[in-house]
Design a protein around this nucleic acid. Structure first.
Lengths: 340, 340
DNA sequence: GCAGATTCTGGGAACGTTTCCGGAAACGTC
DNA sequence: GACGTTTCCGGAAACGTTCCCAGAATCTGC
């Protein structure tokens, strides 16, 4: 361990060179393990490095090499456990390959999406992981249009003009299984509360539900898109239950929406599944430990993050943009029963 | 909007200067809003900037200025909602002041803490936000010892040798209130399951519980430290319940521990609070929506993150290191009742 | 119309690396 | 011992900014 006694400034490659009595370029060669370097030289340089506690300056390296070993992650809200797990999966994978991750919360405001994309571009990130707040914000699309840095979208559809990789969840298969299960139980009117319609997950789930209903003419679906928030979950639940011909089963399209739904059901003193059946999307501790355990359309968010990182690393190695599809599955639970 | 038609390379300040027919330094002055610049000059430069779609290179700027406008956040596991909320609070506050946040998960391995600290230092971050996996890891302390960059610890106690700011939760007041409430209900034997003993939250909570018990000689406490995981929560619950003189009330020292506790209680068919009373730490949706709602020692994680960012920004402006203490409060819930 | 102050501008040295290039030294071959 | 290779090393030009410094231009007061 080197104690920083006399030196007030941190040592540069220059100091190392002086100390070792060699040229700056030789030090650089040793440290980048260039082949043209003698054993004696290597030894001297490494000694000087050790003595001075030298560590190369990342800024200078990045500037010179043109790569920052940094990727930016733009996410609506990291405090949402779904995104937190995705972020974890991605960060751990990137970290293993020497990359660091810059995190920016857009607080679900498309305008911040765009701003952060530009900021990261200026910061010279080598790649971008995007979980956008909206797929249709022009400013965001403009910011993306001119980009030469590799992009990986997380469960988003963008016009093919932006040449991006993507890791997509196959929401439809899970949703179809869930709907089929409800219909099997006897439900004829299914309510679905979901987030913004210009976000892929909402669209896919709705499409799947409608497709299943189309196969069963006796079944009707009523969909309430809005936002992925507890407030919307509660409000939409109230609307559906107070409406004419209220559904006998409810699908909550996200962990925050689920919270709102449960709050509203509790406020009304309704019990699951005897009064109403319930299906949620994306597993959280609450789903498992609620009584009864909540039937859930599950996927593996950690794996999504991993896969996104892999796609990005691939592109950084020169691969072409690629779309990866990850499965979703219906995990039945006692929150579903026959309609009353 | 500037379309990148002919230019394959992104424009540098040099190109802007040529285009505007002025010197490089003048362009720099305009863009850094230096006072010594005429209106005509500003106009010409800004036009050129607009035409070329020029954006300053952050690497070069950082290198020259000696500041990166970046802070590093080392956290055990961002997928834990507590830390995710802290991260959100911090990132939003930092973002507002123009700082970006590098995120690194240490996966609760002290050795990764140390590695990330060194990595961030090399990356020239302007400051560090640390939620360490251990307070006693020598490698980490060594890495911290020589640091000149401002540090803010999040709910951690480190030897005063490291001159760090810290935002600390006052766990004790909440814990004392919870214990008092349990005793008031008639409990005489209180079990507590918590994380690693060389982490401040565990120590503080245990100290508070023991202090309260000391005031009530008829009450005994049995504490099971371990790790902040569901696995430990379940195992410790089983141990306590199978032991001699099992507790009639349980305190779960974290949201993951709570999950384990609830799993074990469910597996045993025990119901809350008639068979056993339950208190948890740090609010999660599960606490609110569980039936019965779980009494919880709450704090405001978003605020913790905000405060950490404020402390760091303060230090970056030249303030001295400072300790901030944030409250915790006991929020009673129907998960507590008289012992059977 | 001139001295001195003020406003503005350009040149160029830094920041800390990497890497190209040319040359010196060592080596083997005839 | 001349010569071509190979191995190793140092010099110096980049990378894209900021900022000090000196000098030019304009202004002010008389």
């Amino acid at each position: 361990m080197t104690v920083g006694l006399g030196r007030s400034q941190r040592a540069g490659i220059r100091q190392v060179a002086d100390r070792a009595g060699v040229s700056v370029s030789s030090v650089s060669r040793v440290l980048t393990s260039h082949p043209d370097v003698s054993a004696r030289m290597r030894k001297r340089v490494l000694e000087a490095v050790e003595q001075l506690g030298y560590e190369p300056d990342w800024l200078a390296q990045s500037m010179r090499r043109g790569a920052t070993l940094t990727v930016g992650f733009v996410v609506g809200d990291i405090s949402n456990p779904l995104f937190a797990q995705i972020a974890l999966g991605a960060e751990v994978s990137l970290q293993r390959e020497g990359y660091s991750m810059l995190l920016a919360n857009s607080q679900n405001q498309p305008v911040l999406d765009a701003r952060h994309i530009r900021l990261f571009q200026q910061r010279r990130v080598d790649g971008l992981l995007l979980s956008l707040a909206s797929e249709n914000h022009t400013e965001t699309l403009e910011a993306l249009a001119g980009l030469e840095t590799p992009i990986v979208l997380i469960d988003r559809d963008l016009p093919p003009a932006v040449a991006a990789s993507a890791v997509l969840s196959d929401h439809q298969s899970g949703m179809r299984a869930a709907a089929a299960s409800l219909i099997e139980l006897g439900h004829r009117r299914i309510g679905m509360i979901t987030g913004s319609i210009d976000l892929r997950p909402s669209r896919e789930r709705e499409a799947a539900l409608r497709a299943v209903c189309a196969e069963h003419p006796e079944v009707g679906a009523v969909v309430r898109p809005g936002s992925f928030t507890a407030a919307h979950g509660a409000a939409a639940t109230a609307e559906l239950l107070d409406g004419a011909d209220p559904p006998t089963a409810l699908v909550a399209g996200g962990n925050q929406i689920l919270i709102g739904v449960l709050r509203e059901l509790r406020a009304r003193g309704l019990s699951v599944p005897s009064d109403i059946s319930l299906v949620s999307c994306d597993e959280v501790p609450l789903s498992e430990l609620y009584d009864p355990p909540i039937a859930t359309i599950v996927r593996d968010p950690f794996r999504i993050g991993q896969r996104a990182a892999e796609l990005l690393l691939g592109r950084l190695r020169g691969d072409q943009p690629h779309h990866a599809v990850l499965p979703s599955m219906f995990a039945p639970g006692r929150s579903c029963g026959p309609p009353r």
